[in-house]
Design a binder for these strands. Structure first.
Lengths: 350, 350
DNA sequence: CGGCGCGTAGACAACGTTGTCAGGAACGTA
DNA sequence: TACGTTCCTGACAACGTTGTCTACGCGCCG
């Protein structure tokens, strides 16, 4: 090792310091870099004496193992990093999912690179490329609606991948049992005497929205309730839109006695609208997807709770099985939902 | 290039496929790997003819640039990745922060590796090492209370670092103006005639909790209100603990006419307790830190809103300035808070 | 017509690490 | 004494990429 290289070493002042490498440690400990490698990786077969010298040098120099170089060289090429593609990491559902995945990953010494696609396919593709370039060991994605060819191409190229919340034929996926969930909701409302149950659904381009709508139609039939198209509104987005639609529905002749909201923000919009109309204790409300503080409202808002933690756990476990070499055909895991009665869904029909 | 290597190439079935490298692309396009490198990195000086051949080969093989190898070799050694150390990524404050940081990072083509320390110093240290091993270009950390020597050591070793929400003497930090925020709260309550204002604070080991307490003491003095130690409770953790304390306070002789909650969950616990007592329209409540749906409660909950997005933006911008070589002495950025009146804080003193 | 500059292309080494293999010492056995 | 075995250590090449440097062909100028 040349002297001038050593003299530019880090001195805990962070100014012009070069980051120390195994060479530096080896030079200081008077061993070969291979011996340093063995000590750092806790491989057996190094005498305690040399190991101590190496560890001292590591501490003195502030040496930090370089995982990028390591994973480049190592046989398995694993980076101990997985990618997570979400619609928006700051949305509570997503961040609960993220956290559950992190917890599973942590047990394997794996870190999570997360990004928000904002439902924009270009942004999703950009993120995907950024993750693949970093050679993540696998990917968990909540795919943006529409074209998923980019994702599926990476999967075909051999990168382990699990889709969450929205399935695709050729890939592993973990989804919520949307239809059964809506079934629970309809049954609960029917049990309290409701026959005129309105359904407010999200954008039809979103898979979960159409599933929930389908569940509504099925469940009405199962309860022997005639489907009334005037009580079904899809593509409901935005608090004010929800408000307008709730007003319209309730002002009509033969208004609904119960509202079934197909998504989080729709539920909140409906709460708002019912409060404005002073009808929150007269008209039943049941929402799909839980939200914080639903129990503190008056009345408490009954919901069909999804289980983002269960979803994340299942997705992460499936992904790691794939990373470990599981070559079975694509699996689809379905996570159940749960009815959480809090009052608003138990208001009886007049 | 040897023939047998080429024959094991990926064939879009993901089975035993080897990931294609620049060598494979170069062989297929009949150019040198350096030329491939130039095309992939969009360096000038490649004839259009060769560039086309290379791009065709890239598409055909599904070649993906390997950023780990690239950053290992490149002069600046940048990985285009930053680390984010939070208490819990799924908490709304943290995930809003995360999102803001992601947005700034995105403009620089940088990805974010995030992890949750759960306020556990060992876990924090473990995460820190994992991030440093991956040679993140910089770190944003919301440090766990207590020993921050691990973090500060990395900073001294030259890794750009910004602390959020909790400062440290020798490092850059971005914090909320806790004292001024509590000042706003006290002033608002005093303006509505309150003189007996109780303060419920979080664990004293948390810096923000002591700051807010200090702000409370200062603001009372500024309003000419005598500090009553019986109205101050610190180390309040857990919904049931909050409930018990609110009951105690209000049952005492000379009870407070207003509650000032020093943290998110304390506020929610207080709402709960006041609802149980049926006093939510009689006792004023002002919370530090906003929370979703606060406006839907009855009465709406007035809060001092922090600005996690502003915090995240400021932290990310400061970090990138450091990454770009800014060597100025440590800076401390203070982000203001905002009073959001929604009703509960505007209940007049009896 | 020789020399020079320019634009393009590739050979080679290097980044920091680990897999492979060979060398040497210490020990036991024939 | 010769030889095999075991344990420890290090030299060297390789992972996939990019920085540096050289080479070649072409056109232009003196």
């Amino acid at each position: 090792m040349s002297r001038d290289k050593l003299t530019t070493l880090a001195v805990e002042d962070g100014s012009t310091a070069r980051v120390p490498t195994m060479r530096d440690v080896a030079a200081l400990a008077r061993v070969s870099i291979k011996t340093v490698s063995r000590v750092v990786n806790q491989e057996p077969g190094v005498s305690p004496e040399l190991a101590d010298r190496v560890l001292d040098a590591v501490g003195l120099l502030g040496y930090r193992h370089n995982l990028t170089a390591s994973s480049l060289r190592r046989a398995d090429q694993k980076t101990a990093t997985i990618g997570l593609l979400l619609e928006d990491i700051s949305n509570p559902f997503s961040s609960a999912l993220h956290r559950a995945i992190e917890d599973v990953a942590r047990r394997r010494g794996t870190l999570v690179l997360a990004g928000s696609s904002d439902e924009d396919p270009d942004r999703q593709q950009e993120l995907l490329y950024a993750l693949v370039s970093r050679r993540v060991d696998g990917l968990i994605a909540m795919p943006a609606s529409g074209n998923q060819s980019g994702l599926l191409r990476e999967r075909r190229l051999g990168r382990p991948m699990v889709l969450v919340d929205r399935p695709a034929p050729e890939a592993d996926s973990v989804v919520v049992d949307n239809r059964a969930g809506v079934g629970l909701a309809v049954r609960q409302l029917a049990a309290h005497g409701h026959r005129r149950i309105a359904f407010l659904g999200d954008l039809r381009s979103i898979w979960t929205a159409t599933e929930r709508h389908a569940g509504y139609v099925e469940a009405l039939a199962a309860q022997g309730i005639m489907l009334n198209p005037r009580l079904v509104r899809m593509d409901v987005r935005g608090v004010d839109v929800v408000g307008r639609i709730v007003h319209e529905l309730l002002a009509a002749a033969d208004p609904p006695t119960a509202l079934l909201a197909g998504q989080n923000l729709i539920t909140i919009g409906a709460v708002h609208a019912l409060q404005q109309l002073g009808l929150q204790h007269r008209v039943a409300l049941l929402g799909f997807d839980d939200f914080p503080l639903a129990e503190l409202l008056n009345p408490g808002v009954s919901v069909i709770a999804q289980d983002p933690t269960g979803l994340g756990q299942a997705a992460a476990e499936l992904l790691f099985a794939r990373i470990d070499g599981d070559r079975a055909p694509p699996r689809q895991v379905v996570v159940p939902t749960r009815l959480v009665p809090r009052g608003s869904g138990e208001i009886p029909a007049p």
